[in-house]
Design a binder for these strands. Structure first.
Length: 1090
RNA sequence: GGGCGAGUAGCUCAGUUGGUUAGAGCGCCUGCUUUACACGCAGGAUGUCGGCGGUUCGAGUCCGUCCUCGCCCACCA
């Protein structure tokens, strides 16, 4: 037997456990007919950088579930991998390229830049995997995937093709959030708001040929004057009087309901609106009338006539009451345009790089938008067309990736139709679970409706409560089309050839391409200038029929790469080009739960070297049919809409079934200030820093303990300053030059907590909260050490419960209950409660009581064997219960325990396994529950605690044995006699324990009363102190008795409370009265000597 | 503006369908090199359950209202 060191050292133990697991391929999962699979798909970390504590809690929760299910006998697969994170990764690499080499992506070119990004990806993927392995993540590393590897790429292409064929993917002009720096569209959730000091310019647009009584100018206001160059109208409300009245009424209602402190503000608002009816309304009505008469405005600088539109978007209560309309650069104006398509156009005055386009006019084209803004303002001012300028703080959208201001821009993008479609959408085409859904979003909504079931009987449920189901549904219910194109270089290129082809060319080509276009694995659409979108056959027919059709936009999508390559030269010759855009990252991550399993066809899926096969082998089914649908998706709530919803709809669309049945939403990790840890905020800390200091188990223990409900977790972070060596609280410290650096409060010098800033010393962050976990591991280690020191020659013999000692029956009873509680809480997705149940049993019952109780037996020849056997068994069981939480230390101890006690068990041998990771989860043992033993031990506990309190009060040295006299009524004495008395003596350092019905004579005894038992410790004195203590206790007792008396005297209580509750109160009262009697008896005994 | 959540011991948090004296860990106080563990052991102190009002025999728990904090969504010419 190896001697265990006195202090647990995770640095030596953790690598050893890891090695054992990897060597035994303990994380690997392969399809096996007849065994239930349990599958978790890891939320893919982005390869933009290293993991922080937010990822750690996510990974630890998954590992907890996976290890638990593995022990329960499920075939547990945890699929790991990383996400290429298109825009994020490209932005990081581009930024470095510029900082280190002063180059832009255009200097490098597409191919070279992508090559750079692959290198970056390799580096970070490796780091991420190292971090996860350090945490103990038991992923099947031989199945690790990347969203851009061959297997996943094929799936992406397949889904795109299917959706394109089904008409669910279309190309359209839409207003998108444009990042002028990265020159790509970005999603709404990739934006953040930032308050910027700006201005509000009021511009005067001349009315053409004003009539008497009509205004000569219409005033409109904007924060972005340069966009006026793209104005195509001015709008006015069709019924300004009614709208203003409505607004006034609303303001009045608000004033009536306003709380005191908002009253003034509400009153002022009401007054302002009432005033407006006089100042603005007449003119607005005039303008509305002018609009009806088709009067025109002269757009200054452009010298273009534009109409006055009547549209409700123009609010009479705001600004001048009129609003300029720039459909190509403002979302609301875009909507106005949609309502007035036949009256106005959209003019795009911006280029992709943020410079003004030719459409802005010769004076402005080529100017950066901010320079153009100044120029436009100056030019208008020079013409006397600038009414006034206000200073204003404006909340402006910024791009999360480039940190630059976003411009709304009209551009051509690819979309997935989320809404309902005429005739519905065929989900799971060609599978046995095929069904028809109204639309993609609706299908995903239905999937978590409790009344819905897929053909496999599955649906999606959220945990720990269904609060987040509402988030999910609310988002999907908008059914907003999903913009899937990004103008990036890093990602899955959109597999479409497109081009504008002239009529003549098309007709020449028809014969050539038609055979191709009629194939199953090719889909083409031809968009005619009149807006019709037709299949090739219909389109060619239309072309022949109508000679006025001059050209068509041709879009061709190939299902597979091979045929595409074959036809490519022909397509090129016809003037088609591959679409340069790439797909939104979420398009590929939506497929993660099945693309990683080889969909659409595991038999032909392409693997990276060394990876486990996904195809069927012999009798074993293939991975896709065996592991899909998966079990549980573990994630933080911010990703519900972005990812969870899209995985559900992609799974339903491709396979006709949900990707998982449960979604476990865990807490977010916040820093000491209460802000969410994230890479971009710079407040994330590397789990490896914590592991190095406290151990991985300690970190896992604390993260599990913190995972209570959905309460977010604050994790105050400190570092020791590399300059003063003093602890620095990062929540209070000032930042240095970057968000990753801080200033030492003593010296004012700068240090770095991540290690990214050159020339600044690195300080390792830590958090004292993890000491709890470290202490726990040490306790576990030492309890095992104690056991192992005492297990030499441990026998195994089946033992009947009747033959066991009182404390043995007690600990088995408590173990049985603890096991059930851990199980119950894990099933309820409550890791904290599960861990605490295991902890409380282990620490408070096993260590504090059982180990102490059996120490004498371990030294006693006759009783030693049984005590050893029980000790080995209980240790075995607690190691199994704790393994999913703290895998490393339990694995190490398990090895030692098996060496010392090859067979463990009480009535029969427990199932054994070489590694605890593969050991069977403790089975329920209701037959071990022993209510009598529990009651007796509870009394022993109470008496011992009281006796110890006496010892502490009189500062009796631990080594000093004292006599203890227990005075109790006959029935109580019957319980405490024998074994219990022995245990009491053992636990409170008694010289002797006397059980009697007679208080000892003399008053030189310290006393305590527990229930109906009086405790005397003769020989320690301070009669007055004793009396005071007992009198205080009597006072409290009397008060409580009074309270219950009153309650029971209350007719309402007796009549209306459940009988069981009333009965309990009566019992309680009786108990308290007995206790009071005993107390008074003790007081009398004290008084005897007076 | 709409929605969701939180407020319990000095700190971080539990507290099941209302029902004994509201709990844990950390911290604090006292004592202890008790043969596994001082990262430990034994003992102890600590609460206007955010405020007010209501329902109820009974409220930390249910309802109303107000205060404070956080998050999500929408909008901002």
């Amino acid at each position: 037997m190896t001697e265990l060191s006195k202090q647990y050292d995770p640095r030596t133990v953790e690598p050893r456990s890891t090695e054992r697991w990897l060597e035994a391929k303990a994380f690997a999962a392969a399809p096996k007919a007849g065994v239930t699979p349990y599958v978790i798909m890891m939320p893919l970390p982005n390869v933009t950088g290293a993991l922080h504590m937010g990822h750690a809690i996510d990974n630890v929760m998954q590992d907890l579930l996976i290890r638990w299910h593995r022990m329960m006998g499920d075939n547990a697969l945890w699929m790991a991998g990383t996400d290429h994170a298109g825009i994020g990764t490209q932005a990081v690499v581009e930024k470095r390229l510029f900082e280190l080499e002063g180059k832009t992506r255009h200097d490098l070119g597409r191919e070279a830049l992508v090559q750079r990004i692959w290198e970056w990806k390799g580096q970070y993927q490796e780091r991420i995997v190292r971090q996860q392995q350090a945490m103990g993540c038991s992923c099947d590393w031989d199945r690790q995937r990347f969203t851009m590897d061959a297997m996943c790429a094929r799936s992406v292409r397949r889904m795109f093709f299917a959706m394109f064929r089904d008409g669910l993917i279309y190309q359209g002009h839409r207003l998108v959030n444009w990042d002028c720096q990265l020159q790509t569209a970005v999603a709404d959730d990739e934006l953040y708001k930032k308050a910027v000091q700006g201005h509000f310019w009021h511009l005067r647009y001349p009315v053409i040929d004003p009539q008497p009584g009509e205004p000569t100018h219409i005033v409109v206001a904007t924060t972005r004057p340069e966009t006026m160059l793209g104005d195509t109208a001015v709008a006015c409300h069709p019924d300004p009087a009614a709208a203003l009245t409505a607004a006034t009424e609303q303001a009045r209602a608000k004033l009536d309901a306003a709380p005191a402190k908002e009253r003034d503000e509400a009153a002022a608002e009401l007054e302002r609106l009432q005033e407006r009816a006089k100042t603005h309304l007449p003119q607005l009505q005039t303008i509305a009338a002018m609009a009806r008469n088709g009067r025109q405005i002269m757009l200054p600088l452009q010298e273009r006539t534009i109409p006055i539109l009547l549209d409700e978007w123009a609010k009479p209560e705001l600004g001048s009451g009129c609003v300029k309309i720039t459909p190509a650069h403002d979302p609301n104006d875009y909507d106005v345009w949609q309502r007035h398509r036949d009256e106005i156009d959209a003019i795009n005055v911006l280029e992709a790089d943020g410079k003004m386009s030719a459409a802005a006019g010769a004076d402005y084209a080529g100017l950066d938008r901010f320079a153009a803004r100044k120029r436009v303002v100056a030019d208008l001012d020079a013409r006397g067309l600038l009414d006034r300028v206000e200073d204003r703080t404006i909340e402006i959208d910024h791009s999360d990736r480039s940190k630059t201001i976003i411009e709304p821009l009209l551009s051509k993008q690819w979309f997935v139709r989320m809404g309902d479609v005429e005739g519905g959408v065929l989900m799971g085409r060609g599978t046995e679970r095929e069904f028809r859904a109204p639309g993609l979003a609706q299908a995903a909504i239905d999937a978590c409706d409790p009344s819905w079931r897929s053909a496999s009987g599955r649906q999606v449920a959220f945990h720990p409560d269904d609060r987040y189901r509402r988030t999910y549904i609310a988002w999907l219910a908008e059914k907003r089309d999903w913009c899937i194109s990004r103008q990036l270089w890093w990602g899955h290129q959109i597999p479409v050839w497109r081009g504008e082809v002239q009529r003549q060319q098309l007709l020449i080509l028809e014969g050539l391409v038609q055979p191709w276009l009629s194939r199953d694995d090719v889909t083409a659409w031809l968009a005619l200038p009149d807006g019709r979108r037709l299949e090739p056959t219909a389109a060619f027919a239309a072309l022949r029929e109508d000679e006025s059709i001059a050209r068509a936009d041709v879009l061709v999508c190939f299902r597979d790469e091979g045929p595409e390559a074959e036809v490519a030269p022909m397509l090129r010759a016809a003037g088609l080009e591959p679409d340069p855009d790439v797909l939104d990252t979420w398009f590929s991550s939506a497929l993660w739960p099945h693309s990683t399993l080889g969909w659409p066809d595991p038999a032909t899926a392409e693997l990276d070297p060394g990876q486990s096969p996904v195809a069927a082998i012999g009798d074993a089914p293939d991975c896709l049919s065996y592991f899909y649908p998966g079990s549980c998706l573990v994630t933080a709530r911010d990703i519900i809409t972005l990812w969870v919803a899209r995985m559900v709809l992609a799974g339903l669309y491709n396979l006709g079934d949900v990707p998982f049945t449960d979604v476990f939403i865990h807490a977010n990790i916040l820093d000491g200030k209460g802000e969410r840890m994230s890479k971009s905020k710079g407040n994330g800390i590397d789990p490896v820093d914590i592991i190095e200091r406290y151990g991985a188990d300690a970190m896992r223990y604390v993260l599990c303990e913190l995972q209570t409900g959905t309460q977010d977790v604050k994790l105050p972070v400190q570092v020791d300053s590399p300059f003063s060596n003093q602890p620095v609280d990062l929540a209070k410290a000032k930042h240095g030059r970057s968000i990753f650096t801080y200033l030492c409060p003593e010296t004012g010098k700068e240090f770095d907590v991540i290690g990214t800033v050159d020339g600044v010393p690195k300080a390792n962050p830590y958090s004292e909260r993890f000491e709890i976990g470290r202490n726990f591991c040490n306790k576990l280690w030492n309890s095992a050490r104690f056991a192992l020191l005492n297990l030499e020659g441990v026998p195994f013999a089946p033992r009947a419960r009747a033959d066991l000692a009182l404390e043995d029956r007690w600990i088995l009873s408590r173990l049985s209950r603890a096991r059930d509680e851990v199980q119950r809480q894990l099933e309820a997705y409550n890791p904290s409660a599960a861990l605490n149940a295991a902890r409380d049993f282990f620490w408070n019952e096993l260590c504090d009581w059982y180990l102490e109780l059996i120490k004498p037996r371990l030294r006693d020849g006759a009783e030693r064997g049984q005590a050893q056997q029980l000790l080995a068994t209980v240790l075995d069981q607690i190691l199994r219960l704790l393994h999913p939480f703290v895998p490393f230390v339990t694995e190490e101890i398990w090895g030692q325990l098996r060496a010392a006690a090859p067979t463990r068990g009480v009535d029969r041998a427990l199932p054994d396994a070489e590694l605890v990771i593969r050991a069977a989860w403790p089975e329920a043992r209701p037959d071990w529950v022993d209510a009598d033993a529990e009651r007796t031990l509870e009394q022993v506990h109470d008496v011992v605690t009281a006796a110890r309190e006496i010892r502490a009060r009189y500062q009796v040295a631990p080594s000093q044995r004292v006599p203890v006299v227990l005075v109790a009524p006959a029935d109580r004495r019957a319980t405490l006699e024998g074994a219990a008395t022995t245990l009491i003596g053992r636990m409170c350092g008694a010289e002797s324990v006397e059980l009697t019905d007679q208080a000892p004579r003399g008053k030189d005894a310290a006393t305590a009363v527990v229930g109906d038992v009086e405790i005397f410790v003769p020989g320690v004195v301070d009669v007055e102190a004793e009396r005071r203590k007992l009198e205080k206790q009597r006072e409290q007792l009397t008060a409580r008795i009074g309270g219950i008396d009153k309650k029971l005297a209350n007719e309402g209580f007796v009549a209306k409370a459940p009988p069981a509750v009333v009965e309990r109160e009566r019992q309680n009262l009786a108990g308290l009265r007995t206790q009071l009697e005993a107390l008074e008896e003790t007081l009398r005994a004290l008084g005897d000597g007076d």
